[in-house]
């Protein structure tokens, strides 16, 4: 498995930024999701994979629907980890997990990170875990050699950015706009100031997500100094649209990610 730090360092040398597609594990079902993860892993630099949750309060309607499809297809925490283990046969690229706190808590925090380690997960981001509550989670992540990823929002002030960076070991996930996840066509200009602001207090990689759905946005954000871009909802809309046509889905999704990847170069 490739190290997150090494991935960002290698990209830097070749003057590229990281393209990180996000999907929910098991959407629309285990096999189709695995085929999709394999296909998009080939076209990108890192994967972000979500565990479906019943009440995803940080997510908009697109990802909520993906969570519902995955749950209906019979996914569970055990199957989610099994999925990643299987995926690991096909890709060494870093995998960032996106989960909600209760899914970690119910496994037993240490046990969750142990399973993540066994599945060769690189880092974990817990959507509803601010740094104030993070001590036991960060401790267990460290113990199992998993990196901790935290988010920064447009409302996070400078002192808090420093505090968050102090807890983060993987990369900082900058939320590009107020609100929940969901595809938008343009970038809000506050993002550029936020990237500068974060850069002035930490050397950690900055990866930007929420509302990014096209190559022009990817390019704009990379130009502004981000180290990577996460694209989720637009990709998941493709799953929704093509869930009964797996071949079409694979070709479309791979093509979409390939196109976005171009936006991270030069």
């Amino acid at each position: 498995m490739d190290d997150i730090k090494k991935t960002f360092a290698t990209l830097k040398k070749s003057k590229e930024k990281a393209l990180v597609p996000f999907i929910v594990i098991g959407d629309p079902d285990y096999q189709a999701s695995l085929a999709l993860a394999k296909a998009i892993a080939r076209e990108s630099d890192m994967l972000e994979l979500g565990f479906a949750f019943s009440d995803p309060i940080a997510d908009g309607p697109t990802i909520q629907a993906a969570d519902q499809r995955a749950k209906r297809s019979g996914m569970s925490t055990k199957k989610d980890f099994q999925f990643i283990k299987e995926l690991r046969k096909y890709t060494n690229k870093p995998i960032n997990l996106l989960v909600y706190a209760n899914l970690v808590y119910q496994q037993g925090i240490g046990n969750f990170y142990r399973q993540a380690k066994e599945a060769e997960v690189s880092s974990v981001l817990i959507a509803d875990l601010p740094i104030e509550e993070s001590t036991p989670y960060v401790k267990e992540a460290k113990r199992h050699g998993i990196m901790a990823v935290f988010t920064i929002s447009p409302l996070t002030d400078r002192a808090r950015i420093k505090a968050i960076a102090g807890k983060t070991t993987g990369f900082l996930y900058l939320i590009a706009r107020l609100g929940v996840t969901g595809a938008k066509k343009t970038v809000e200009h506050s993002v550029f100031a936020m990237i500068k602001n974060i850069r002035s207090v930490t050397k950690l990689p900055i990866v930007v997500g929420f509302g990014i759905s096209n190559k022009a946005q990817v390019h704009e954000i990379c130009k502004a100094g981000a180290d990577g871009v996460i694209v989720g909802s637009r990709l998941i809309q493709m799953i929704e649209k093509n869930k009964n046509n797996p071949k079409h889905l694979l070709a479309n999704a791979a093509g979409f990610v390939r196109e976005l990847k171009k936006g991270t170069k030069g």
Binding site: I57, A58, A101, A127, D128, L129, P130, E132, E133, F150, T151, I152, S153, P154, L155, T156, D157, R160, I164, I175, L178, G179
Partner: peptide
């Protein structure tokens, strides 16, 4: 700890809501 009743309570929210809380 702030906002706890014994071991219950706390502030488990996305970062965007933390400044408001």
């Amino acid at each position: 700890m702030e906002g706890y009743f014994g071991k219950y309570g706390g502030m488990f929210i996305p970062e965007t809501l933390v400044p408001a809380a």
